[in-house]
Amino acid sequence: MDREEQVLFAGFGGQGVLSMGQFLTHAAMGEGKNVSWVPSYGAEMRGGTANCLVTIAEEEISSPLTENPMTAVIMNRPSLDKFEPKIQPHGTVVLNSSLVDRLPERDDLNVLQLPVTELAEKMNNPRGANMILLGAYIQKTSVVSLDDVMNNFDVIFKGKNPKVIEKNKEAFLAGVEYARKNWK
């Protein structure tokens, strides 16, 4: 990781986009990093658009905001249309290819795609799509250490039903597995 990493998570409301960002924020905080989580807020509703920006840094975070994140995790097509032009040169875009029916037009981006909606449905865990994507993304980029995430899983989900935690863990590991096999 560079000294500062800014990751944008974007998708439909209800896809767990804000939760993905919070999960990563918690995980990075668990590693002793400086973090911030800034949600878009508005008259949000299921099916509307939602996004959040996570900043992870070794040093104190001056600005928790940016126009140009290094990485964008994109859960649906409108989010790709909106944010593709804003990703930093040679940045990374992680795509939910189940719902994004095109590739980025830019040729400088590092594109990682996986059909998370389909994978989640196959696992009979449709609400776990976000965790699959997150698992794959963390496995591939090591933005936070996988071991730390696994060790902190229960802390991050503190207060949640153990069954829910288990389902999320399964989905997360499926994503890790997918990235190991498919993203060389």
Binding site: Q22, M29, N34, S36, W37, V38, P39, Y41, P64
Partner: peptide, 10 residues
């Protein structure tokens, strides 16, 4: 600002 109310930091 509204954003400061909505955002999270440790």
């Amino acid at each position: 600002e509204g954003t400061l109310g909505q955002m999270m930091e440790p």
